[in-house]
Design a protein around this nucleic acid. Structure first.
Lengths: 198, 198, 198, 198
DNA sequence: TATGAATGAGAATTCATTCAT
DNA sequence: AATGAATGAATTCTCATTCAT
C-alpha cells in the first residue's frame, strides 16, 4: 500500500529542509562554484541524485537560499522595533542577534551572490532589489530617535547607519571561516562607532 | 643573434610580474576554484600555455601570491613606525594606506586562502604562521604609546588592536566586490572604535 | 474482502494492456533511448513504479512490443486473402489498412528496433527472423494472380512486391512525425508502381 | 616557436571537417539523444574534450549539421536544371544523385530533426523554414515542362511532386539502417509514379 | 497491488595541464 | 620562449531501477 499523501508531504518537507540546511552551510563557505552538489548531498546525508528531486539544479537551490536569506535579514531588521529598551539598547540586542550563530551563513550567502561569478541571474536580480539602502531606510527611524534622545552621535544618520551596517557585514563575512583566526569583537566597542561618549 | 642572458632574464622577470599582477586580480575576486588559468592568461595578455613556463601549476601560482601578500601586509604594518605625527595620526594614515586601491586584493587573497577548499596545503600553512596575533604584536608598541599620551581609549590594548584590525579586514573583504553596493565608511568614524572622545 | 483470483487476473490484464498501449505510442515517436519509463507511466496514467510489476525492464517492455508488432503485421498481410475483389482491389484495401491510424506506430517500432542502438539483442534477433523476405513470400501468390489476370505489371513479382513494400514502409516511417510536414500520398498514385497502365 | 597562424587555421579546418563527418554518421543513425559525444569523438578518432574546442555543445554541433544538410538538399534540387536531357531524364538523374551514398545521412538528419525530441529549438526553426513545400516550388517548372511535353502524367503537378518526394524521403530514411534488410527499389519502377505509360 | 522516494551508473561539459610545433 | 591543440579527470545532471510503506 502506498504511503498516504500526508505522510509523503511531511517527508518531502523534512527532506527539503534537510537539504536547504546542508546547502547554506556549504555554499556560504565555498561559494557557488566551489560547492559541489555531492558535498551538499553528503552533508545532508543523502544521495546526490535525490537533490534533483527537490531542486531542479544547483542554481535553483542557490537562488532559493538567497531568497530565504533576504527575507530573513529583513525580518531580523524589523524585529528591532519590537525589542525593549532605549534605541541604543535595541541596536545592541539587534547586533547580538545578527552575530548569533547561524546568521553569518546567510550574510555570507548574500555576499557570495553579490561577488561571485557562477551566480545565476535570478539570484543577482533578487539581490539588487535589496541593496544596503533598503536596510538603512528600515533603521532610519530608530537612529533618528537615538539622536533625539542624545544616545547616538550627531551627523548624517544615514551615513552612520551605513557605516555601522558595513562594519557588521564585514565582520559577518570574516566569521564564516572554519578555523577562524579572527574572533568577533566586543559589541560594546563596536557601538562606539555610533554612540556619543560621555 | 641570440639575446644575452641578461636581456632574457629581464624578460622573464617582466613576464612573471605580468602574470602575478593578473593573477591577484582574478583570484581575489573569484577564489581559487572560480579562477581559470585561461582568465589569468587573458588578463595578463598572453597564452595560457605560457603560464606553465613560469609557474608549475595553478596551486603554485596561488601560493606564490599568498606568500607575497603576507610579506606585503607585514611591511605595510611596520611602515607605520616611519610615519610622522602622533600615534592616532599614524594609525589614520596606516588605515588610509591599507584602504588604498590595490591592497584589498591581497586581503581578499588571504581570506580566500583561509576559507576556500581548493587551497593548497602549502598556502594554508603559510597563513597559519601569520595569524592576526602577529599583526597585533607588531602594532602593540604603537597602541601602548597612544594610550600613554591619552589618544587611545583605555582597556586591553591587544583586544583593541584585534578589534580594529578585524573591522578593517572585514571592510577589505566587502570592498572586493565589483559593482559594490557598499561604500567604504569614513575613516574618522571608524577611528572612534579606538579613540578617546573629548 | 480480498478480490477473487479471477478479478485480480482481469485487473492485471487490463493494466498490462494499458501499459503496452502507452508504450507503443511513446517508443514509436521517441525511440528506445529517447523514451523514459516515466513518460510511458504518465501516458498510461499510473506510477512509474508500477511498470516494473508488469515488465521486468524497459528492454523487456520494448521487446514485448516488437514481438506483438511482428505478429500484427503478419496477420495484417494474411488478411489480404480474405478481402473481396480482384487482386489489385485487395492490394488497395490492404494498403489502406496499413495506412490506417495506429498501424504506423508498429512500423516505426520495427524501424526503431532495426536501426537504434539501445535495442536489446532479443528484439534484434526477433526482427532478423522477420525480414522483408517473409512478407514478400506471403504476398507472392496474390501478385502472381494479379499478373495472370493482367492487373499487375510484368516483371519479377518478388522485386515488385519488395519495391512496393519498401515504398510503403518508408511512408509509414515518415508518417510518425508529429507536426508532419509530409502528407500521405494518394493511394491510387502509389498503385501505379505495380499496375499496368491502360 | 609557435606554429604559424596559417598552419593552425588549416589544422582547425581539417579537424572541424573530421568532426562534422563523424557527427553526420552517428547522428543520422542514432538521433540526437541516442548519440553520445564520445561516440562522435571515437568515430572521428580524437578525444571527446576536443569536440568542445570546435563546437560549443552537442546541440550546436547538431544544428550546424542540419544547416549544412538544408543547404545541400536545396542545391542538389536546383542542380536538376543543369542536367542534360528531357525532363524525365533529368528527374531520373536527380533521383540517382539523391540515392547516391552519403546523401541519405543528410535526409535522415533532417528527419531526426523533425521528429526527435532532444532537438534544439534552433534546428527546429531552421527546418520549419524549409518545408517540403519549398522543394515542390523548386521542382514545379520542371514538372510542368514534363507535362507539356507529355512525359509526365496529368494531374495536379504539385501533388505529383509532393508524392514523389515523399516516397523518396521515406526510402532515404529506410536506407540509413546498417544491416539493411531493405534494398533500394529500382528507379525505373519508382518513376512510374509520375510518368505516363505508353 | 500501488506509490513515489531513493540510489547510482552513465552522459555532457569544463578546464588544468601537457606537448608538438 | 610562445602558442594553442589535445587530453582526460572531475563535475553536473538524468533516469532506469529498487524498495519501504
Amino acid at each position: 500500500m502506498a504511503p498516504s499523501d500526508k505522510e509523503n508531504q511531511h517527508l518531502r518537507d523534512m527532506r527539503r529542509e534537510q537539504i536547504l540546511d546542508a546547502a547554506v552551510k556549504v555554499f556560504s563557505r565555498r561559494g557557488v562554484i566551489g560547492t559541489k552538489m555531492s558535498m551538499i548531498a553528503e552533508v545532508a546525508g543523502l544521495s546526490h541524485g535525490l537533490l534533483y528531486h527537490y531542486f531542479k539544479s544547483k542554481d535553483q537551490l542557490f537562488t532559493t537560499l538567497v531568497e530565504f536569506a533576504m527575507e530573513q535579514s529583513h525580518s531580523t531588521m524589523m524585529y528591532v522595533y519590537q525589542l525593549p529598551g532605549s534605541p541604543i539598547e535595541k541596536i545592541k540586542t539587534l547586533t547580538e542577534l545578527i552575530f548569533r550563530e547561524g546568521n553569518s551563513a546567510y550574510f555570507m550567502l548574500i555576499h557570495q551572490a553579490r561577488t561571485s561569478d557562477g551566480v545565476p541571474e535570478s539570484a543577482k536580480e533578487l539581490i539588487q532589489r535589496h541593496s544596503i539602502k533598503t536596510y538603512v531606510d528600515q533603521l532610519l527611524p530608530l537612529f533618528e530617535e537615538g539622536q533625539r534622545v542624545g544616545e547616538i552621535a550627531d551627523g548624517d544618520p544615514q551615513e552612520l547607519i551605513s557605516c555601522y551596517l558595513t562594519v557588521i557585514s564585514g565582520l559577518m563575512l570574516l566569521d564564516t571561516q572554519v578555523n577562524g583566526d579572527y574572533s568577533k569583537p566586543d559589541i560594546d566597542i563596536l557601538l562606539r562607532i555610533i554612540t556619543v561618549s560621555r
